[in-house]
Design a binder for these strands. Sequence first.
RNA 1: GCGCUUGUAGCUCAACUGGAUAGAGCAACGGCCUUCUAAGCCGUGGGUUGCAGGUUCGAGUCCUGCCAAGCGUGCCA
Length: 578
Amino acid sequence: MLRSFYLRYLMLYELEIAVNKLIHKLYPSASNIVIQFERPKSADMGDLSLSTAMVLAKQLKKSPRDIANEISTQLKLINEFDRVEIAGPGFLNFFLKHEVLTAFIQKILNNNESLYREYNEIPQSVYMEFVSANPTGPLHVGHGRSAVIGSALARILKKSNYSVHCDYYVNDAGTQIDTLACSVILRYVQSQTPELNYPTTCYQGEYITEIASELNTEILPQAVSSIVEHESKWSSLEDTEAQRTLITIIKSLIPDSTYKLIKERAVSYIIDLIRTDLDHINIHYDQWFLESDLIKNDAVKHCYTQLKANNTIYEKDGAQWFTSSQFNDEKDRVIIRSNHEHTYFFNDIAYHYQKYLKADKVINVIGSDHHGYGPRLEAAKNALGFKDKELIMRYCQFAILLRGKEKVSMSTRSGQYITLHQLIDEVGPGPTVFFYALKKPDQHLEFDIELAKKQSSDNPYYYVQYAHARICQLISKAQNVKSQEMTLLSHPTERQIMNQIYQFDTFISRASRDLSPHYVCFYLMDLAKLVHQYYNDVNILKDSDLKRLSARINLLECTKITLKEGLSLLGIEPKERM
RNA sequence: GCGCUUGUAGCUCAACUGGAUAGAGCAACGGCCUUCUAAGCCGUGGGUUGCAGGUUCGAGUCCUGCCAAGCGUGCCA
């Protein structure tokens, strides 16, 4: 690798590779062991550490401390280390040369791309899908979590050298969408004929009335009166039956083209609501993929033929079944119902078929209430002959929504739920995002609305932003002295800050490996902590040594870049002032 | 019943795929602004990691069995 004059030292990932080579050369039989730096518990244990000697002890049948000794002799060849110590049962603790860190800081000042690990492996392509809530109403606070986690992951994977495509899959076909269309129609009819009872099986939200109010001449007066006349046919029935009957009757009373128009208008109205909400928290998609397009472009038909040819479809009770139980699912699944309608699963098979054609790795960020769905998608993938592709279902535990101590109902149909929009309004976009990303995705999340509001002044988000704003303030007030003498940075906190920045890429690769964006939040909080500490310990602007002052401003500039990069991975704009 | 996920300080959560004395933030208590933004800093107290076994140099992390919570177990999506 070509190194310019200011980069005399290896970056962390290069250092890791070098150490790997040395140890593997020393112990050829241990080639299967991956050596990764760890961070020691406290600063007096050095900047980096390895537990490799203890891992090797079993394989080599030698004492860990002897192995550590052998390794440390070899590692003296590496220029970056000031010294290597052996501690406890056989830990190797590394103390980096001060110049390794200062050179790194200088490198970032010259080019902030240096913050990231440069992977050697062949870049893979990833096809991501997240949220994909049905377009039957605005997003609620539960969707917010997978939205934030999904989009943060997409950015993190991009930084990790994957090429990433993001989809929102729009279920614009099926019973729920028919119910949506009928809800709008009935609200319209009700506006003309107030005595009509609006059924409980229809969507109750205010937005339905708004969509209906934009209709005027589409529904003719005679259709209105005939719908009113038919009311008794569904009003006396049980829920599911009433819903089905309602759809059938309304479809029969309104021309196909009108019905289709209203349906499309309702869907696009709601998609706009969803898009706008997500826009406020910096979430954007490459594509809004319509389920209805799958049917138009024959993808579904193609998959059917393929599955049929592989002998994985059979008929039973008038329906078409997919033999998913032969592919590790717990039972076979219907793909075409006896009434000839496609199941959701069937169209989704076709959707995923297209994903596998375009990418090596498919990641679906999805609520954990759908975890039973994964095995059948995996089954379909393998039945279609995509065994070499990777399907990852990243389940997010659902937020249990509380208002004070009371559970809040999350039913879309009842319309009694807190929307994502309301949450962003109350809490603000930045804190909302940070709060969602802060927790490990597979951890249950108690989302107390009152608490979320209270946290607006208490949120770790502000802690990080405050660090950034403080730095901006200092930089703008500092005299402009151009000094490159970074070696003047000798304060212990300065070293800790440099070390934290040096390790930025390990946090990114950890987040990328575990598909867990919360590592980024914790990294930022750690860095912010050091900044606040530094601010209190050192009176930076009052320094009479102007060269040191300048070096310190350089360090702060570099810290600012790092905070900004971390926040932007989450989709948060850094604040210049509080 | 079966399956998946989770259980860590009073509360909300971490713990780098088995490593060092299990850490932060709230909350409690005690200090720090005539000095660059006190939305900050420093300090103190707080733990049988749900329970019981097992695997090994070493377990919050792995295996088994219980207990508790959430979800799933549709020709719903």
